[in-house]
Design a protein around this nucleic acid. Structure first.
Length: 564
RNA sequence: CGGAGUGUAGCGCAGCCUGGUUAGCGCACCUGGUUUGGGACCAGGGGGUCGAAGGUUCGAAUCCUUUCACUCCGACCA
């Protein structure tokens, strides 16, 4: 490709709304452009990268026996109603009608469509397992798209679905896909962790997210410094911290604590550290058929992990309970304790054996001192948010938190969808069974941005070897110099004949423009054909290190063949 | 969905408060010339229904109303 013909409108200024490096550089370098909120055009350079990533994903999946299909982007609403997700998915699901008034949705994910495809076509256990995937546009009407390609409404995703006769085989496939995903991300040159994740409303017995480590990530992840343990903060576990009982002595009973409501105030008031207090977190839990106030109790120094709480009580959503909400069920904000009637209560498991605690007395201006959870009939469950410095449950190592961007998610789904949609096969005994399913996603267009999020400097993009839109950019310093032009032209042709992906910057601009565009666009290597030609020399520039190396013109071809 | 903003040339912005020539500036673009190893210079030039609709007024980018779009913070987000 000649740069003079390439549609790559590079700019000096970034759009004012771009904040992240990936967003700024991808726009400035002319890889993508925004056409609407959360909707992006891919220009030639961006499209090449997208296709390269897509090809890697396809290659690795096909290698392990997955088969690519392509489902309709638009799905009849019927299927979504059958699975029960038509209502559950909420406003993210974009719905519309055709001229005949039939209802459709723009596919945000394709469990339903894929089950429908397989249903009645795969009839016997002999045809299993089966792993089908597609790399196709998705649309989710996000409330707030942001960060360029990282959180768009329209995006390219690889979504795969596997069908099995039993859990055991699903687990085998799940492990295989995990390995395959790792390989894909390795090839793309990304630093990532596969972390344990909350399975969320989707259910299933296991799920892992592939998180690319990046400062601008939206997800908090917990990593152990001693072993391989890594988890999304929503699912992270820690070793229970033990209280030293002898530090504090207290006599059991109610204690007058006028207007002392928060843990901080209590800690000051009693001159006792916050871990001796019991924090009550009241939530208004939204269920499909009703709302209800639920209380969660954690140690004063801990934070309630809402995602954990949500999946434990099975609610669809939480709202903060207002003082009025609390009053309506007989609770007084600031003085809530665990001993309540007719209210659902969950207690963090770490409190189960504690004997000397201070909690609300469920009476205005009183707290209860010397409270014990021992031998009480509460639901003790994991509710806490893991924090920096907590101890790993597996190896005793130190846990630390970092930011990540989710680029892949794999689920052991089970029979949820196959049951809902009546998709069965005949097992070895001739009995109809629902398919045991797995589902696996990779955000392909998100990966384009993620690579830059992880690989850039203050001059622009730095594409990794397998993601780069071109391997080499041959810069003709001065196109009016016929010797330079002719030499560059010849080198360009030679490399192209060898199948290399080469860009020839033959624009009439000055050297500075071309070298800056090279740095902005982030091709791995540039060859500068310029003044040095008089001494039979050109230069190779390494984009990553920005180091320039002089190479004799009779060696340059071989050198490049070796490098790319 | 709650809160806060912004819409003026391809991009970045000024003008608006206090209505009044032909709506400006930088970058980009076109023509000619001089340049050519780190985003050149000189000269000339093109490009705008000032987001949209309605209203007030002799007169609206500017004031009022409505609406749309986009952004930011938050909530949300297999």
């Amino acid at each position: 490709m000649r740069f003079s013909k390439l549609f790559a409108p590079t700019t000096k200024d970034a759009p004012k709304d771009a904040l992240l490096p990936s967003h700024i550089y991808l726009v400035r370098a002319g890889f993508v452009s925004q056409i609407g909120s959360g909707i992006y055009n891919f220009l030639p350079l961006g499209k090449i990268v997208l296709d390269k990533i897509r090809a890697i994903v396809k290659e690795e999946l096909d290698n392990v026996g997955c088969q690519e299909v392509q489902l309709g982007f638009i799905t009849p609403s019927e299927l979504w109603k059958e699975s029960g997700r038509y209502d559950k998915f909420g406003k993210e699901l974009l719905r519309f009608k055709d001229r005949k008034n039939n209802e459709f949705v723009l596919g945000p994910t394709h469990e339903e469509a894929m089950v429908d495809l397989v249903k009645n076509r795969i009839k016997s256990y002999k045809q299993l397992p089966l792993n089908l995937y597609q790399i196709n546009t998705k649309f989710r009407d996000e409330a707030r798209p942001r960060y360029g390609l990282l959180r768009g409404r329209e995006f390219l995703m690889k979504d795969g679905y596997s069908f099995h006769e039993n859990d055991e085989d699903l687990k085998r496939e799940y492990a295989l896909i995990e390995k395959t995903y790792a390989k894909i991300l390795d090839r793309l040159g990304l630093t990532y962790r596969a972390v344990e994740a909350d399975s969320g409303a989707i259910g299933g017995s296991g799920s892992k997210e592939f998180m690319v480590i990046a400062d601008n990530g939206e997800d908090d992840i917990v990593i152990c410094d001693g072993c391989e343990y890594a988890a999304n903060i929503e699912a992270a576990k820690r070793t229970k911290s033990i209280l030293k009982d002898d530090e504090v002595e207290m006599q059991a009973g109610e204690f007058h604590t006028p207007d002392v409501k928060t843990i901080e105030q209590l800690s000051d008031f009693f001159k006792i550290p916050s871990e001796f207090f019991v924090k009550a977190v009241a939530k208004k839990a939204i269920f499909s058929d009703h709302e209800e106030i639920i209380l969660f109790f954690v140690r004063g120094c801990d934070q309630l992990q809402e995602t954990k709480a949500l999946s434990i009580c099975g609610a669809l959503d939480f709202e903060d309970a207002t003082d009025a909400d609390l009053q309506s069920v007989g609770l007084i904000a600031g003085f809530i304790g665990p001993d309540v009637e007719n209210i659902k209560v969950y207690v963090d498991g770490e409190l189960e054996d504690e004997e000397m605690l201070i909690c609300g007395a469920n009476r205005e201006n009183y707290h209860y001192v010397g409270y014990t959870f021992k031998d009480k009939e509460f639901d003790f469950v994991d509710l806490v948010t893991v924090e920096e410095g907590d101890i790993c449950t597996r190896c005793g190592g130190k846990l630390s938190t970092t930011k990540g961007i989710e680029v892949g998610h794999i689920f052991q789904l089970g029979t949820q969808y196959s049951e809902a949609l009546g998709a069965t096969f005949l097992d070895r005994n001739g009995k109809a069974q629902p398919f045991v399913m797995g589902t696996y996603g990779i955000g392909v267009s998100r990966l384009v941005a993620v690579i830059i999020e992880q690989h850039h400097d203050d001059r622009g993009c730095i594409w990794t070897k397998e993601s780069a839109p071109f391997d080499v950019d041959i810069i003709v310093s001065n196109v009016k110099d016929e010797v330079q032009s002719a030499f560059a032209q010849k080198l360009y042709e030679q490399l192209r004949q060898k199948g290399k992906s080469v860009l020839l910057d033959d624009r009439a601009d000055r050297f500075g423009v071309k070298i800056s565009d090279f740095e902005l666009c982030g091709f791995p290597l540039a060859v500068i054909v310029g003044k040095g030609l008089k001494e039979d020399k050109v230069q190779i520039v390494n984009r990553k290190t920005l180091v320039k190396e002089e190479v004799a013109i009779d060696k340059i071809f071989d050198k490049l063949m070796e490098l790319v």
